[in-house]
Design a protein around this nucleic acid. Sequence first.
DNA 1: CTGGGGACGGGGCCC
DNA 2: CGGGCCCCGTCCCCA
Length: 444
Amino acid sequence: MEISSHQVHLLEQLNEQRKQDLFCDCSILVEGKVFKAHRNVLFASSGYFKMLLSQSSKETTQPTTATFEVFSPETFMVILDFVYSGILSLTGQNVIEVMSAASYLQMTDILNVCKTFIKSSLDINEKDHYLSLSAKSTNSEPTHPSLYRSRRKAKSNPRRSCSVPEEKTNTVNENSWSGYNSYLSSQVILQRTETQLSKRGRKQSTTRKRRKHLGLSQGRDCAQHKSHKAERASGDCSTSESSHISRVREEAKFDAENNVDHGYNHESEAVPKRDLDSGDLPRMRFKCPFCTHTVKRRADLKRHLRCHTGERPYPCDACGKRFTRLEHLRNHFQTIHQAGKLICRKCKRHVTDLTGCVVQQGTRRYRLCHKCLAEANFDSIPDDLDAEHSPTSSTGNKCSKWALEEEQKSDEETMEEEPYNLVVRHVNNDIPDEADEKVKPNLR
DNA sequence: CTGGGGACGGGGCCC
DNA sequence: CGGGCCCCGTCCCCA
């Protein structure tokens, strides 16, 4: 005989224990703020903690400490509350960061809910083409988070909540969100407040220029490229997600500073929005729910949203770097791994297979003309000028080192003798590091 | 310190 | 609607 209330009761008790710091054997440090929790609970809820705690499981007598800098304490609070209550306090303001954090912590349930949250917000506006939310936004609780919870009863929470399919949430049935959709359309107002978004110190956007399109602030000049750098250093896709958080924050901060009205409270956010062109003809625009950007086509919006969600479905097989678009992957691959540019890297002259040859270093390939090759004193395929891998000292002797490196490589890395083939895989971000089985045709 | 170039991200739009 | 191309802006590295 199953007593359904037991699970609820158990979780409530654990939550109480957490709040009273009873039996907490794990401290999580998020940007200086300490959260107490139970190892067992974290282990059961997060793939990240599962890994972390299983590594330190032998030292069970010592309290475990985990430190995070990639998301804010507020975000972690939302996640921790969910872990201990089954209630996920999602808002248009925090959904991106919660999603990124969930991705980092490998909490697929939350990840899927966040995705659905975003998707739902788009679907709503899709259905309500010309239905302005202005009237709806007069609701007394316009900024209340929408609460995702499991089937357990929302005992003590007076706020509206929405049923979330709790079991098998890895495959969230989107149909089950119809209730949420209606809730969303009447309740959820995606807005970003300055207070929330300016909490964390970020690079001042004084140098930021407005983007050319529609005065759009993409904010990528700062955060995106920070992440880009981080990616280069670590190859960790989570950095791109955290960068995306920064970006969104920066956008909001910038907008707040510049008094930009996103119209989130009084316009349909995610999209079709009527616009009058010069000829007074109605023209549909699709509005991004996270920034001021509008596009003509839904597909373009979908593409644009990747810059908010941090989704990078196209990983490079050669170096692991991930891209938001196939064409970017292809360009990267051809340039970096296939020496696609028929230009001598040294003298910048045009080279062909006859007038030059391909030099390889690691996974990178480029071309040198025979002259530069000779000047570099290479007998055979030399290696290169690549800062990432080139020896830092004795620069004068770089070339011989490269050549040597190449000789050594010839034995152990025979596969590098073969040019890389670009196999495009569309990787599901749910499991960032797991190669997707869905292999697209080889593009070459 | 600075300018040039490479790499990359993102938008517009055509097919 | 997806794929692809072109263009532009930004960052980073290096000479």
